[in-house]
């Protein structure tokens, strides 16, 4: 592979755009196909398969062995709420390979002392997420159970087709939340995608245990064959 191809690939990854590296296994010559350019490409079918599954595809074409390796944008976990659960979730999610950010306008919670290892935004989700919009490669976990803070990012996450949208709160809290989101114009299809109560049911009790349950649920959502966008 030529270093220039590696540079192009890294630029696509940094811009959060999906791309596939096509390598001829006999010569090592490589071509980078951007997600946007795959439609008219002679290999469009296996390229699409690689991008949708996130897994490489081997293709034999005119006596050549080609290896199609997809690169999807780094997965982002956006945590709404600089709460106790977030303090455990942030380092665990970073270790698992996710890019993590914490957003909370309550400056008493969002202090660098409590969150030294991840990006922390002591600001409203509306402000932060307009700068860095959500996309299909994002997971959003709303953990404040304060409608003023949680509702906007939950709605934005559903509209952006984030692969995971989870919200903390009792069934009663969640029931009221659904009413508010419905009156904001979200459909039942949208609302069914919210994971609530948040986290896989592992009888988590402490904040750190709940963080494990949430992280596991995010991983399960990403790996699920039914993931939004995985089969389109």
């Amino acid at each position: 592979m030529h270093p220039a191809i590696l540079q192009q690939l890294q630029a696509e990854r940094q811009a959060r755009r999906a791309a596939v590296l096509v390598t001829d296994l006999a010569t090592g010559l490589a071509e980078l196909v951007r997600d946007a350019d795959r439609a008219g490409h002679p290999l469009s079918e296996p390229l699409s398969k690689a991008l949708q599954s996130g897994a490489p595809v081997n293709v034999e074409q005119e006596g050549r062995s080609l290896f199609l390796n997809p690169y999807l944008p780094p997965l982002r976990i956006v945590v709404i709420g600089a709460v106790h659960i977030s303090q455990a979730l942030a380092p665990m999610a970073a270790l698992a390979g996710f890019s993590v950010e914490i957003i909370d306008p309550r400056t008493a919670f969002a202090t660098p002392d409590r969150f030294s290892t991840v990006r922390l935004y002591p600001d409203w989700p509306e402000a932060v997420l307009q700068e860095e919009p959500l996309d299909r490669y994002c997971a959003v976990a709303a953990l404040t159970h304060d409608p003023k803070i949680d509702d906007w990012p939950i709605e934005a996450a559903l509209r952006a087709e984030c692969f995971y949208v989870g919200a903390l709160g009792s069934r009663k809290t969640h029931g009221k939340r659904l009413e508010r989101l419905r009156s904001a114009g979200l459909t039942d299809d949208h609302l069914e995608r919210i994971r609530a109560p948040i986290g896989l049911p592992i009888r988590a009790s402490s904040p750190a245990e709940i963080a494990v349950a949430v992280l596991a649920e995010i991983i399960a959502a990403w790996r699920s064959p039914e993931r939004a966008g995985a089969s389109t």
């Binding site: 270093p3 590696l6 890294q10 380092p91 390979g97 890019s99 991840v118 990006r119």
Partner: peptide, 20 residues
């Protein structure tokens, strides 16, 4: 500890840095 220090290194990023 920075995020970079605790996140697992990305091999392609390392490759690009080494080339530079």
């Amino acid at each position: 500890m920075s995020e970079a220090a605790i996140a697992m290194a990305d091999p392609l990023e390392v490759a690009a840095r080494w080339i530079s």
